[in-house]
């Protein structure tokens, strides 16, 4: 009896602790701290980018005389506005190619049986999980052989390798959620198989397609390894690479570097704020299958 009471007592104490842990105050405190941890580095970059050169060296918290001078040093004096343009071109082209190739492929995996279909699907998954760092050395050689070093094409091709398997997988998972009865109905009504895909099934999967597009754009925008390997030339390098190049300077202009960093974060941040639901769907769409 006494033993049971004791464990009971211990249990009740634990339950009381748990009630505190679960209370709204603690929940919001946790989330507040998490947001603080995530946002502080970004805010710090923004503040740094608004300081004068002296302000950066003086180590003040806030920019005493806020100025956009650092932005003009990074974007105009260094010419990094071209890197921004390159980034937009590379990310858009990569996203377009990947979505056009990957969406029908995902559809086929969700609908049709064919010889070795599971093996081909596993191959696609493995391509996705293959470490890109492993391909960098041969890729560098191939790119130089074909004269694609320091070109945007070289970066776009790398992005196709990186994101096509992911998109095939995600799109397949979205297509699977749509009943095949829909295709069959379209076929009965006289659609060809392509028409059934394009005019009947595709419109239904549009939210998934949007999620895939947004995800691919963000991934291509933030890619560093291949972009850095292929190009460090102003004609073709992307803005994340350009920002990194500040690190090699003798006396790093931290203000200008922060400005370049802010410029490369802004598009991603806007996409996240505008399309957060789609991103959540896209990120978790990879596991619903």
């Amino acid at each position: 009896m006494a033993g049971a009471d004791l464990t009971n007592e211990r249990y009740r104490r634990r339950q009381r602790v748990w009630d505190v842990v679960e209370s709204p105050y603690v929940v919001h405190l946790v989330l507040f701290l998490a947001v603080l941890f995530i946002v502080t580095p970004l805010v710090w970059m923004l503040l740094t980018s608004l300081k004068t050169r002296q302000g950066v060296l003086a180590m003040t918290y806030l920019p005493l005389e806020p100025t956009l001078d650092a932005y003009s040093r990074a974007l105009i004096d260094r010419g990094f506005w071209r890197a921004v343009v390159n980034s937009v071109i590379v990310a858009s082209a990569s996203t377009a190619i990947v979505m056009v190739l990957g969406t029908p492929a995902g559809y086929v995996f969700s609908r049709y049986r064919f010889p070795y279909d599971n093996a081909v699907f596993v191959f696609v998954l493995f391509t996705r999980l293959f470490p890109p760092i492993g391909l960098v050395t041969p890729y560098y050689r191939i790119v130089s052989t074909f004269g694609l070093l320091n070109t945007k094409t070289g970066i776009v091709i790398a992005n196709v390798y990186l994101w096509l398997p992911l998109v095939i997988y995600i799109m397949r998972n979205f297509f699977i959620t749509i009943p095949t009865a829909l295709d069959e109905a379209a076929r009965v009504d006289g659609c060809t198989k392509v028409q059934a895909f394009r005019h009947v099934v595709f419109p239904v999967v549009l939210p998934g397609f949007a999620a895939g597009t947004i995800l691919t754009f963000l991934y291509s925008w933030r890619e560093f390894l291949f972009a850095f390997t292929v190009s460090t030339d102003l004609q073709s390098m992307t803005i994340p690479v350009a920002t990194f190049l500040f690190v090699g300077d003798a006396g790093i202009d931290w203000g200008a570097m922060a400005a370049a960093a802010v410029v490369s974060v802004i598009p991603s941040a806007l996409v996240v704020i505008a399309f957060n639901r789609y991103i959540v769907v896209g990120l978790t769409g990879g596991m619903k299958g």
Binding site: L31, A34, V35, I38, V39, P41, L42, W44, M45, T48, L218, W221, R222, E223, F224, F228, I239, P240, V241, T243, F244, F246, V247, W254, M257, A258, A261, S264, V265, S268, A269, V271, V272, I273, N276, I279, V280
Partner: peptide, 23 residues
Amino acid sequence: YTTLILLSWAVPLSIVGVTWRWM
């Protein structure tokens, strides 16, 4: 909350590096 927490995921990886390098 989710949107704010997602922000760091969207930051280009080299920018993550230079940001922490600077801090």
